[in-house]
Amino acid sequence: MWSVVASLAPVVGASIWFFGPSALLVLIASCAGAICTERGIAGTRALRDGSGTITGLLLGLTLPPGIPLWMAFLGGAFGMAFGKLVFGGLGQNVFNPALLGRAFLQAAFPVALTTWPASASSWWSLRGDNFALPLMSPQVPDALTGATPLGLFKFEGQGTDLGSLLVGSTGGSLGETCGLIILLGGAYLALRGHLNWRIPASIFASVALLAGLLHLIDAEQYPGPVFMLFSGGLMLGAVYMATDMVTSPVSGLGCWVFGAGIGALVVIIRIWGGLPEGVMYSILLMNALVPFINRVTQPRVFGTNLGSSAS
């Protein structure tokens, strides 16, 4: 588990590089929410395996840097309590706890969760009202709000060039800006056998395929596959969230189905849905389908249902 934390280090580093001290504060708050809840409710049953830290870090990476810290803490606590502990703890949950926390925050505080910083005067300045009093609204100066590449495309029909998408010099959540670093972390994890490469592979493939097809049909209305792949939380979601072993299918075939489903849902929500970004919802929806996928993709047991090929 700690190796997952280690592989997240460059992503965390990049988020601090891009968003300054706000990023660090938000990450600390979300981790504190997750870990305190695990300790508080599960008590001695809490495991020292770092899974609480992963939940906190992943949640933090999906949040905008300017969010009040109390919201980040609340998200971590909610995800841990209702996404994990209520199912019986590590290995038993159905939904990815970090994403459940994030979905809860998104539904609870839609404004705060969609307020992105444009740029800051210096690296040291905060990117929003991080220190808003608990339960109170943040004071967000209008000048600070920018937009994400997906938001720009969806609501204003503006594209963003590939270079900025790759390097991460765009608006967005902490961990969803630099695609390259996330891919590197994913490659490291895949090589060490900590993630099933089939999931990101099938997500990328289905997104590229669907987006490519639509782009061919109408290049004006539908963005190209490269933009779709590198914008928003797709990289972070595909590499770190969807591959959470507990909430993904157990069999290889199941993983392909799971990934393809996520990719298709992402494209559907981004293009025909009301929200600019759908990675989080796509993964949660497919999480819900995992038990069903596991049932359906159970491989044929050796020596059973032999066709005509037998004997």
């Binding site: 009040p68 919201m71 809860f104 839609p110 339960l135 109170m136 609204s137 943040p138």
Partner: peptide, 12 residues
């Protein structure tokens, strides 16, 4: 200045 938890009045 209370920040409402909108989700609570929604179905979830």
């Amino acid at each position: 200045s209370y920040e409402p938890w909108v989700v609570m009045i929604l179905p979830p």
